[in-house]
Design a protein around this nucleic acid. Structure first.
Lengths: 217, 217, 217, 217
DNA sequence: CATGAATGAGCATTCATTCAT
DNA sequence: AATGAATGAATGCTCATTCAT
């Protein structure tokens, strides 16, 4: 029952380095986050218990509460973390986009590439899912990502880049397409975000009349 | 606090078609299913407990286990039930479809109309969702419905009606679009399945090049 | 881990007798109450835990909650029980009293006799008390008893039987005297409620000028 | 969140009377005692936790254990403190008393005046009490005070100043009267210790035949 | 000596499941 | 077959206490 332990050997650099205490704290916090991410992914947010999380860290049960007040709080931290990494990417895409087409292109590509860096969140092969295959559960991180994309799309639309359609339905469709194609993409070998993005973007753009009909391949 | 009870004394007429015994059994089974559907919808599958379900039926807790072995089993029954009602509709659409366009048209329309008849499954206003908005939960019935549609699309594609695209991505996109637009549709007032279906179908069909570009509105 | 068990042999009398189930329930309820009384008395209400109570019954932990929702509820039941037994006695004394003197005489006597029947509530030798002797804890039953006496006194006073004094201070004094002398009485051998009552009553009555000065013994 | 801290660097002057170190220690000790007194008064002794106490001091949790080994120990210190202040007062009263009447007069007055100076110990409005009103909790200080008075009375009695009564019952009655009237006194506005003392003293003295019957008011 | 994170026992409570009635 | 009480594992969480820093 050791969990994260104080490093046995100091590196001697005491200047700006965090003290042993701070280090252990940071390590523990990370360990909890990591464990939570894994547990949420395997069991689903609802089914996961705080004890599942700490059990996986090897820390004592009480220790969890030194870092987070509840399962919900870890979930929020996890979501915040993923959002913090995704948001600037989406913002950049918005800023350099000249029209809806270029925005969508960039955003979807960015999202798919982002996905690949986060496989353990969408991680193919969730055992929980096997127990009752009909239910698809979202982890907090996944939920946060979709909300972020939604927000990004809405921003673009508000700025007049919108195509002339029912925008609520459009964003719903967009999210749906990105969500499902992204997930399929992760199961392919090799994982090819460019191809997936091309498919999704063309489908949407031509679907709303922003692209010419596809040439027969 | 008895709910549906077995009559203590039979009136001697045991030969009539369903039989008193069988009738009560069927009633109880239905009561449990109905309660489960409501509970799953209100609390979400994971958060719902067997106790929540039987509490709502008024039956005794032990009685539950005469019909189902666990929450999972009721969920499966619920899924089976919804599938049983959806499947023939989708099959009919497949059988009378002449091309992918006509199939998709029929299937999506059928699905959206079906949704409306099952509002209590998608029931807007799940309080649980409010507590942690990032998480979207699926009820067993919802999961089953999506799986059924997926299967139907795959059948159509296997039978050669497929458009010339990556069919796995296509079905993924299709499901995503139907799923998300269907959900949005349910929250509108008035609920208009035809308009929603038109949007979804045109998006997909034009998206894969099966429809001409949309005229400027 | 057997706790209260179903009696092994029925006595064959099935007429008005409670079913086995009801009997066990009644026995369990009593066992819990009894255990709670002992635990409160030994550990004090605050220090006692629900687990202490059920541990002492030998029942399973969950079983407690089939009978009471919390420690507070058992405490209330305990208090209600003691009050239910004390109240009619006090009422009788009030009704047959002709003046304050006769009321007080009757009430104090009744209270002291009642105490003796409830030794296990005031039980001499509370181990908890030894752990930190400065603290005197009241069990819920004790509290209820004092409240009941207080109410009784106030009733008498309201009905004009009051002596001409500051009645709030009078009742306070009365309760204090009864409380402390009663407790001392229980530790004597032999326990003599009559002598104790005589002392308390004379002290109070002469104290408020309702009795002549005591003759030198 | 440091509360009282040990200065990180000494200024070299370590020889001054109490010494920096000793001073800080005394300050911390006092801070803990003060916090404990407040916490016990607000929450009751049993409900109060060591954490509650240190939280209120602003000190680190571990620091508590440099001064006291447990909640019980602070309680004892608190009791000792109050006793230390009360004892000389009572002794003085004993020493200048010529008979039981004069002693009682002085002692009760002293006690009631003392009470007023320690309102925060008896502090009216303990929220805990409201949650389950039947239970009256004593703080360690309160208990100590009563024990001290008890001891004082017994001393007087041993020295032959005793009236001709059952002295054990007498002290019990005395304590009871002082305790309850004292408490009521604190809730009156204005708080009048003289009046309260007069009531209590006359009640007891006349009660044991040491005073003539009261004149009709 | 102060600090505050780690520890793990303990508590209240809920729940799925069993089984005597 | 229906009932509902009993069971005990499991959960979220708090707390006293220790100890490396």
């Amino acid at each position: 029952m050791t969990g994260i332990v104080t490093p046995l050997f100091s590196d001697g650099s005491d200047e700006a380095a965090p003290g042993k205490r701070e280090l252990t704290k940071a390590l523990n916090r990370d360990a909890i986050l990591k464990a939570a991410r894994a547990v949420f992914s395997e069991l689903g947010y609802e089914a996961a218990s705080v004890r599942d999380i700490i059990r996986r860290t090897g820390l004592a049960s009480g220790t969890f509460y030194n870092y987070y007040r509840s399962k919900e709080e870890v979930a929020k931290a996890l979501a915040a973390d993923v959002v913090q990494r995704l948001r600037p990417i989406l913002r950049a895409e918005r800023e350099q986009a000249t029209d809806f087409e270029s925005y969508l292109n960039g955003a979807i590509r960015a999202y798919f590439r982002f996905l690949i860096g986060e496989v353990e969140i969408w991680g193919p092969g969730r055992p929980r899912a096997e127990r009752f295959p009909h239910i698809r559960v979202q982890t907090p991180a996944q939920g946060a990502v979709f909300e972020e994309i939604l927000a990004s799309i809405n921003l673009v639309i508000e700025h007049g880049l919108a195509p002339r359609v029912d925008t609520e339905y459009l964003t719903a469709a967009l999210i749906g397409v990105a969500q499902n194609i992204g997930e399929k993409m992760l199961h392919r070998d090799p994982v090819d975000p460019e191809a997936a993005a091309r498919f999704a973007v063309e489908l949407i753009l031509r679907g709303i009349g922003a692209l010419p009909k596809r040439e027969p391949a």
